[in-house]
Amino acid sequence: MKAETIAFFILCLGLVASSIAVVISKHLLRSAIFLALSLLLTAIFYISFGAELLAGVQILLYAGGVITLIVFVILLTERIEMKKLEETHRGAIPALLASSLVFFILVYFTWTSPKVQSLAKSPSSSTFGISKTLSENLFQEWVLPFEVLSLLLLAAIIGALVLARRERKEKEI
């Protein structure tokens, strides 16, 4: 067996293990850390599949930004950080059923879909994930939707600011 293959399987094991640990660990913060780990490992998968930009964005936004925010919120929220999350395990069996159903649906459709199979036969021909083609698409062909989206996000940020500020004023009175 080639060294790459061994490394790939080690990565697979790590990803599955950390993903399971996210769900079953009883500390909120531990879950968050395992989530960061699984996101990182996913990024490594992206790299090995040649989607470099996607991997970079995954690390920068998800592992770096989102996880930091999640951890920040956990630490700032009063007195939840030391509690164990036992009560959330109540609906474990229905959740297991539902998630396995989703899993089988996903696997079935990807397995039978002709488009996926044609992609799997010639994976390197795709230019997806290369920054140049992406930026050309983003800033030339789809520049208007892109700008509209950014405007929407800006509106959302300003809206959040306005909402937060109003709340504080009421408290001061």
């Binding site: 913060l29 850390i33 990182l40 930009l53 970079g56 690390i59 592992a63 770096g64 930091t68 951890v71």
Partner: peptide
């Protein structure tokens, strides 16, 4: 191609360790 992006992305992960 994205060395700079990767470098800054990984640099931003250090803070999680500090947090932990």
């Amino acid at each position: 191609d994205l060395g700079l992006l990767y470098f800054s992305a990984i640099g931003s992960l250090i803070v999680i360790g500090v947090f932990i």
